[in-house]
């Protein structure tokens, strides 16, 4: 790689990292220091914001709540999307194309459109303020996304693989679990990455469908701005902590990204 290329890339990485660095640096300052003289880095490493978040249940439960519904959503989405994606990639049936399109449109449905009916729907079935409510609501866009991505990967596996397996005496479930799923491992990794990503970053629905028991961290963070001003240090610390789970997820799927991000469609 030439020096020029390296330089340009470094410039972009700097652009990516500077705001995150600033968030981190804020989280390590005290509020006096933040509002006082401008400084590029914290005077001393001040961890009190983190300690507060990690010891106060009303704070850290926000992370637990968010992770809970995200994991629930990932499980539901991948389990129902796998057979559906297989059906779309292998069979023709009445209405298949239109069904697929209808699923895709839900990717684009802006949650803002649905807020009120959502609230009332989940309230009327008694799921309001539960983790499963948010997990189900996020299925609206996550299941279509999973079906779409997986369909791409499955279609890139030749149909002869299926036929050979049947000839070799595999039953459909055995074939699916033992042969097919391992073949689209990258695809499943990337799908899980996307499911995590979109459920983790969404807040509007999550906030609307919860009150106290299942409140996501994003909603709890609004507590930092009060009549007496914004608690910048705590806001920054809470924000920094929301990046951590995402980083872990990227770290785990990093080897699949290069291959899998094209969603099986190259």
């Amino acid at each position: 790689m030439s020096g020029g290329k390296r330089g340009l890339l470094a410039l972009y990485l700097l652009f990516t990292l500077l705001p995150i660095y600033w968030l981190l640096s804020m989280s390590l300052k005290t509020n006096q220091e933040i509002l006082g003289a401008f400084s590029l880095w914290p005077e001393s490493l001040n961890l009190h914001a983190y300690i507060r978040i990690l010891t106060d249940p009303s704070w850290y439960m926000g992370y637990v709540n968010s992770l809970t519904y995200v994991l629930m959503n990932m499980t539901i989405s991948i389990l129902v999307a796998l057979p559906a994606a297989y059906a779309f990639s292998r069979f023709r049936f009445i209405g298949d194309k239109h069904l697929f399109f209808w699923l895709l449109t839900n990717l684009m449905a802006p949650p803002a459109v649905f807020l009120l009916p959502y609230f009332q729907l989940y309230y009327s079935v008694g799921l309001f303020d539960t983790h499963i409510a948010v997990a189900l609501a996020h299925c609206l866009f996550n299941i279509p996304l999973a079906v779409w991505i997986l369909e791409g990967f499955m279609s890139s596996v030749p149909k002869e693989v299926d036929e050979t397996a049947y000839i070799d005496g595999y039953s459909f479930p055995a074939f699916f679990v033992k042969i097919f799923i391992p073949m689209i491992r990258s695809g499943i990794g990337v799908t899980l990455f996307f499911l995590f990503m979109f459920s983790w970053v969404e807040l509007l629905l999550a906030r609307t469908l919860t009150a106290t028991n299942a409140q996501p961290i994003g909603a709890i963070m609004t507590r930092t701005s009060t009549a007496s001003g914004v608690d910048w240090a705590t806001l920054a610390a809470a924000g920094t902590l929301t990046i951590v789970p995402g980083l872990l997820v990227v770290y785990f799927v990093r080897n699949h990204i290069a291959k899998g991000f094209a969603l099986g469609r190259t």
Partner: peptide
């Protein structure tokens, strides 16, 4: 239960 859907 479906009242909130305000059907017409």
């Amino acid at each position: 239960m479906m009242e909130w859907m305000v059907w017409t």
